[in-house]
Design a protein around this nucleic acid. Structure first.
Lengths: 206, 206, 206, 206
DNA sequence: TATGAATGAGCTTTCATTCAT
DNA sequence: GATGAATGAAAGCTCATTCAT
């Protein structure tokens, strides 16, 4: 009948890290398949091959698990979007640079898209989930800002800060819509038109 | 939220329509305030001043209520976005037309934004909710398509279908981000840059 | 994942009052038999012939039930101790008056003694239970104080307030020890000696 | 708190005795602070700086620990109450002798009063705890009996056995009430009145 | 001997939905 | 039609105890 501040196991042994990972992977899988609200801790533990007691010794809370899992996912996601192949040159402002990152974004959103879709849902209703997404967004905005600043003299945008937000928002939603909700037309056509839009928006002349 | 095949009252009397409306309004209010998952049927009935038994004679299911309420909301929302003041001329393709509808969209998303945010969350995880949003999206895409077709010769877009999707997606997310999540900069700056982006994208020359 | 302030049914119908009573009686019985800590809500509900859902619509909490049950018990208990038969005269200070109330006390402590014993246990560790017992104690002390004041001139106690506490404490524990824990010797002998002790303590001469 | 027939380490090494002591001390501390029911084995082991495995090799059971701890405490407690300073003379029956032991009792109950209070609670609901308290009580009763026998001819009590119980019960509860529950008035006044009560009860004349 | 990860029965509580009145 | 008392499956979480290392 009283409150209690329980301790959570911090895994140091290999076996334990595996266990924690197994739980996280099971969670991702079930969250993606059945939705976050329809997945209960017992199921996750069962799929991970772990007792419910173990579950709660690694994650003080179902919510904590979600946050952990999401954090890990978003880190990966971010790297996937912004990774630069060594053979891509960024000196010149060109349609190809825009196409390159847009394609990257689409690909990244295609990885674990079910899980991403389910957690995105919570972005709008859960403050902690929102915070994680906001952090990723902030990082992405910085990247876009840096990009625009880098080509400052070769593009015609006056309000770079606002432009970054507009571009980010457009890109993000297009990729999410495509990957999470689905579109009737060919993905390549969308990437093409999006690339056109951004290029014309920024380029001093076509 | 189990399925069931029960008979649901179809209100014909004024009093009944009021009751049904009261329930729907109470639901919107609570969904917005506390979130959909944290609002239970008893609370809705209580706020509506209706017995829980009545509640279930109007809505066979909590889910049905949500769908009804969302349907009504989305209809209104759609009209708000696309309503045309009599003093606005649409003959010429101009920055002002784009700005006009963008502004409309932002305003519309500011109405019941809490409720919209909460239901948008479900778009990504609930098939029925998704369906309603998809229907509204289809209508919106038709409008944009028609708009682009109308100015076909005055703009330079080749793939109109793809362009409509890109534009819709960009506009929708910018408005939602602004109204549901919040942005650090002035809204006007965003509308301005968005208008620039779309205008430059479409205009044959600036 | 959120807090919630649920409503508790206030029974107005006869049937409901019976139900609430049935739950309370079942609780008393089980608390007495198995101890409070070893009785769970499901068992109480089952013995009362009530669903667990009903249980929680009458009592927001297991703890609330305990408090309710204890409150009702202590009220009864108090009346039992201090009830005055019409044929007993209280004008004269006498051994018989002391014996009369002592006997009453012993009898009262014999009613639901198992339940009393179990709750008494919590008096020492639970603030809310303590509060109820303290309230009853306060009432009892007032009675004893009034008694001593009434016979002020016929007894030789100087510090009446302290005397009341001492007498109350002695009487209470003797009855509890006898009824809850058990004694090796005859109860009558204890009542007799206790009566002697109090009488000699108070009487101006023997 | 299930029964089990496992082997329990009997510590012979100094280090082990220290370990066992550390566990017992940690238990006393936590039982006093948080209550017995709200203290779990992990916490005790942690505070003692001992692994949970060690804990269970010294105490087959959480319950066994409680009993051990309580036994040690009650032994000390008993000695504290009945210890006789060398400069106190017991030849004559006097108010001072009564005051002396009463004061001793109050002092003894002030030591580890939180722990005593918590365990006293269990006296009323746990048979094994009851047994320990009963043993201490038996010893105390013997002392009082011996005391009364010693002054047999100088006091006027007929039923010494009953008198011992009555006196013991009164003294015990007054001290417990004062130390565990608290009283509004000055402790000295209580000791004074209690001393008066016992003295007048026993003394042949005042 | 010592460790602490692992177990899982068991507890409290919620809430969508039903149905007798 | 209207009511709201009643239901009970199901969820989250705890903790005494075990046992492989």
């Amino acid at each position: 009948m009283k409150a209690n501040n329980k301790k959570v196991r911090i895994p140091k042994q290999k076996r334990s890290i595996n266990k924690k990972n197994r739980i996280m992977n099971a969670a991702i899988q079930l969250f993606a398949q059945k939705g976050i609200h329809d997945t209960n801790s017992k199921e996750i533990a069962a799929l991970a091959g772990v007792s419910i007691g173990s579950f709660y010794s690694y994650f003080s809370d179902k919510k904590v698990l979600l946050i952990d899992v999401l954090e890990r996912y978003l880190d990966n996601h971010y790297s996937e979007i912004w990774k630069q192949d060594s053979d891509v040159r960024f000196e010149e402002f060109s349609k190809e640079i825009i196409r390159y990152f847009t394609t990257n974004l689409f690909r990244a959103c295609g990885i674990s898209s079910d899980f991403h879709r389910e957690t995105k849902a919570l972005r709008y209703s859960d403050p902690e989930v929102k915070k994680l997404f906001d952090e990723e967004k902030t990082k992405a905005l910085k990247q876009i800002n840096a990009f625009l600043e880098f080509f400052k003299n070769k593009i015609k945008v006056a309000d770079i800060e606002a432009a970054a937000i507009v571009i980010h928002s457009a890109a993000e939603n297009l990729a999410h819509t495509t990957k999470f909700i689905g579109i009737k037309i060919n993905e390549a056509r969308l990437i093409n038109e999006f690339t056109n839009m951004i290029y014309r928006y920024l380029a001093t002349s076509e």
